[in-house]
Design a binder for these strands. Structure first.
Length: 263
DNA sequence: ATGGTCGTCTCACGA
């Protein structure tokens, strides 16, 4: 079973790239973030033609999340139930697997803009609510995977130039603590289960030839509950879509779960 | 050197 996440920065602009990527990289579920389109503009038909069902939470201009899946997602939950918020940042669905139902969540965590700003305070409050909700969600769904754009680089190894970024939004200590609190619920960063190339990133700023210089951050993550970790056979960042013309500033992260042999 | 580039009902703002 393959689970992937991709912040597409406008599904309207990126739909042809999403279709091309899915053609080349069939997955069981693809979590999308930053759809930037209203609920009624979601391209469900084009994705259905590819064989993907979809659950989505749209919002005009900003945010918006979806889960595309081979099997229909059930028990769809939109947004954090414990956090009143007009911004569409979370969608959770239940998918069948060889070992039983898996809860798959697509999350677009707030960016935070700048340390000390109102948006930064909102980010930390949002993470606290995510934490509290996940604790309950993991009790209900012991097999849980939450994928998305966390807008947090968990460690200096996830930052191209830690000295330059020190203390800034996306790497500041309170944000990293908020991320670690999610892990303390019993979630594991799938990417770090495996040996990885140094300077592996999932996002590069559009400016200053950042991708060409590999001046990026690893802020897109796949977190797995403990019962899924033994099944995780691989987790990779696919840099290829970042080389496309008119790319998203993020590139997909893909986790492979193997249910053969291990129960 | 506080710049730069995207996407959005663009001449501003969020990322």
């Amino acid at each position: 079973m393959k689970l992937a996440t991709w912040n597409v920065n406008s599904l309207k602009v990126r739909l042809p790239q999403v279709i091309a990527w899915l053609d080349a990289n069939p997955v069981d579920a693809l979590c999308l973030q930053e759809l930037k389109l209203p609920q009624e503009k979601f391209p469900a038909e084009a994705l259905a033609e590819l064989g993907y069902k979809a659950s989505w939470a749209g919002q005009k201009t900003y945010n918006g999340v979806a889960v595309l899946s081979r099997e229909v997602g059930t028990d769809v939950q939109v947004n954090l139930p414990n956090f009143e918020d007009p911004q569409q940042r979370v969608i959770a669905v239940t998918l069948p697997s060889a070992v039983g139902d898996i809860r798959v969540i697509s999350a677009y965590c707030p960016n935070g803009q700048a340390v000390g700003s109102d948006k930064y305070a909102y980010k930390l409050a949002w993470f606290a609510a995510l934490h509290d909700w996940l604790r309950e969600e993991m009790q209900r769904y012991p097999r849980l995977a939450i994928l998305g754009d966390y807008n947090v680089a968990p460690a200096d190894a996830d930052v191209h130039d830690p000295a330059k970024w020190a203390g800034d939004v996306l790497v500041s200590e309170p944000e990293r603590e908020a991320f670690q609190r999610l892990l303390s619920l019993g979630l594991t960063d799938a990417f770090r289960l495996f040996e990885q190339e140094e300077k592996s990133f999932s996002w590069w700023d559009y400016r200053q030839f950042a991708f060409r210089r590999n001046a990026g951050l690893r802020i897109d993550h796949v977190l797995l509950s403990a019962s899924l970790v033994p099944h995780c056979a691989a987790c990779i960042i696919d840099k290829a879509p970042r080389r496309n013309e008119q790319p998203s500033d993020h590139t997909p992260v893909v986790a492979t779960l193997d249910f053969k042999g291990v129960s």
